[in-house]
Amino acid sequence: MKLLFIADPLQTFKIYKDTTFAMMREAARRGHTLAVCEPRQVMWQRGGRVTAQVTGIRLTGDPVEWYVADAPASVALADFDAVLMRKDPPFDSEYFYATHLLEQAEREGARVFNKPRALRDHPEKLAILEFPQFIGPTLVTRDAADIRRFHEEHQDIILKPLDGMGGMGIFRVGPDGRNLGSIIETLNREGAQSVMVQRFLPEIADGDKRVLIIGGKPVPFCLARIPQGSEVRGNLAAGGKGVARPLSARDQEIGNALGPILQSRGLLLAGVDVIGDCVTEINVTSPTCFQEIFDQTGCDVASLFMDALEAACIAPSA
């Protein structure tokens, strides 16, 4: 197959842990052809198709000079067997616009994973609202008084912006309410910005688990991101320690319930974040943790993903 990866610049990849690289490596091992571009290189003009300035690459196996590149060329996205949208968050206006270009490419025959409409319909913080049976006490509001009432009820809370990533902008406020006003001002901006507030889950001490869903099925192992020192965030980007573990019975229950729903909407890959027994986020833009799980357990997540991708490309278009 001819695969196009829409991603961040290759120079920014840390290939020892990068999930997109793990996908590329497995695809190359199977004999698939690789090409890359950035979202800014995708364009459409009336009378033509959605195209991109793409660069064909071949992997070298060298840990530093890990690829060789062909000269860039303009190619229609529909000419690839699969287009993989792997641009990292934030999901900003430009990401939003990119999903519309990708949806136009779909109308021209492109197969895009994850499906552009599904990326728009599943904001990673708000996607959990559809599954109240699996989440803890949660509030989404622009009203500072709502936040104060929630804190009064639950005492120990987490506040976070809806557009954050990697643990950015997350605050914990305990029973004493210290700094709650300042935190509300920072996140809420006098009612201009919505905030998600959740009851603090002490099980975070045992890790914020990333449960990967591939082709509607949970991967047998998750990666528990464990906060270090006095840090409340388990995100790897915030210094958390990643420990791979078999799924618990609750993790499996969540994965089995959410997996078929997410797959039916065109989400070939999703990362469900679970603290204790509660879902806290559903990541769909560019879920990670393939390599950490493989390195610690031998479970070849990239191979499971490529199996699902190949099967999806054979299936009739929705």
Rank of each mutant, 00 (worst) to 15 (best):
M1I: 14
L3R: 01
L4W: 04
D8V: 13
F13G: 08
I15D: 14
D18G: 07
M23H: 10
R25I: 00
R25D: 15
G31E: 06
T33H: 08
T33L: 07
L34G: 03
L34D: 01
A35W: 08
V36G: 06
V36D: 06
Q41T: 03
V42A: 03
V42E: 07
M43C: 06
R46I: 15
G47M: 06
A52Q: 01
Q53I: 01
G56R: 10
I57W: 01
T60G: 12
D62R: 08
P63Y: 12
W66Q: 09
A69Q: 09
A71Y: 00
D79P: 03
D79S: 14
F80G: 03
A82E: 05
D88T: 12
D88N: 10
F91L: 10
F91N: 03
A98Q: 09
A98S: 12
T99F: 02
R107F: 02
E108V: 03
R117L: 12
R117H: 12
H122Y: 15
P123E: 02
P123D: 04
E124M: 01
E124T: 02
K125Q: 11
L129Y: 07
E130V: 00
E130S: 13
P132V: 13
Q133S: 15
I135C: 08
G136H: 09
T141A: 05
R142F: 03
R142L: 07
A144R: 10
R148T: 14
R149I: 08
F150T: 10
L159D: 12
K160H: 10
G167R: 08
G167H: 05
G169E: 05
I170L: 11
F171V: 07
D176Y: 04
L180D: 06
I183G: 04
N188V: 04
N188T: 09
Q193I: 13
M196V: 12
R199Y: 02
F200Y: 15
I204S: 09
I204K: 01
D208A: 11
I214E: 09
V219R: 00
F221H: 13
C222L: 07
P227F: 01
Q228C: 09
A237M: 13
G240E: 06
G242C: 06
V243G: 02
V243T: 11
A244F: 09
R245T: 14
P246S: 12
Q252W: 00
E253P: 04
I254H: 02
A257V: 12
I261T: 13
L262E: 00
S264Y: 05
L267C: 04
L269P: 09
V274Q: 03
C278H: 15
V279D: 05
V279S: 01
E281S: 06
I282T: 13
I282K: 06
V284T: 15
T285S: 14
T285K: 02
E292T: 10
I293T: 05
I293V: 14
D295M: 08
Q296T: 11
Q296V: 11
C299N: 03
C299T: 10
D300P: 00
A302R: 07
A302V: 05
S303E: 15
S303F: 05
I314K: 09
P316S: 04
S317P: 13
A318H: 10
